[in-house]
Design a protein around this nucleic acid. Structure first.
Lengths: 96, 96
DNA sequence: AATTATTATAGCGTATATGCCATAAATGTT
DNA sequence: AACATTTATGGCATATACGCTATAATAATT
C-alpha cells in the first residue's frame, strides 16, 4: 500500500516532528464519520457518490489510511446534512 | 504562484466536479482561525512555531491559498487550546 | 519618518491526498 | 451454502499540501 509511513524520517527545522499524521485525531474522526454516516443511513458508496468523492477515499478515511483535506470533510458534511463541527465532535488529547 | 487553479479541468468518473477546493468553507475557516488566533493572542509565527507548522502554511490557510489537511487543523487546535469544532464553528451553505 | 514586527507572496522539492480501476474481504440476505 | 451488498485493499497517475528559504508588503512602535 501507499500509506505505510506514519512516522517522519527527515529532520525538520524549528522543532522535532514526531508524526506526519495525527493518528489520534484521525482515528477519532474515522469513528465519528462512521457513526454519523450510519446514523444517517448512508453506505460508503452512497456518501461517496453524492459527495463527489471516490469510494476509495471514503474507505481510506474510515480506515485511517488518509489524512483528508478540510474540503473533503466539507463535502461529506454537506451530503450528510450535518455541521462540520458535528464530524469533529470529539476531544483531542493535549499533545499527540 | 502555485495555487492558481481553483477549478477542475479534467473529466471525472461518476459526476461532474465543479471545484477542487471548497472556496466557501475555506474562507470561513480562514476567518475563524484568524479570529480565534487573535483572541488567543498568537501571532502567525508563534502559532506556527508551537504547532510545528511553517509560517508559510499558516499564512496560506489564512489567505485561502491552501486546503489544509485535518491533521494540520488538529495541531493548530491543540496549540490554541480550543476544540477542533471551535475552528469549524460556522455554517456551510447547502452546496458550494 | 525610521525601525521593528507581523503578515503575505514566491519558488522549489518531496510527500501525500485523491481520482481511477480492479479485486478481495467481510457482512448481510435468502 | 450461494448470492448480493458493502467495505477494504492495491497500484498507478496527477494535483496539491507543506516544508524550506527568501523577500516583499503591511501594520505597529518609537
Amino acid at each position: 500500500m501507499l500509506l505505510c509511513s506514519f512516522y517522519d524520517v527527515g529532520k525538520q527545522k524549528h522543532t522535532e516532528r514526531q508524526k506526519i499524521y495525527d493518528k489520534e485525531g484521525l482515528i477519532l474522526l474515522a469513528k465519528q464519520l462512521k457513526e454519523v454516516r450510519a446514523k444517517k443511513g448512508f453506505t460508503q458508496e452512497k456518501l461517496a457518490y453524492e459527495s463527489d468523492i471516490t469510494l476509495s477515499q471514503i474507505a481510506r478515511i474510515e480506515t485511517v489510511k488518509s489524512n483528508p483535506t478540510v474540503s473533503t470533510i466539507f463535502k461529506i458534511a454537506r451530503t450528510l446534512n450535518v455541521s462540520v463541527s458535528e464530524l469533529f465532535n470529539f476531544k483531542l488529547g493535549p499533545n499527540q
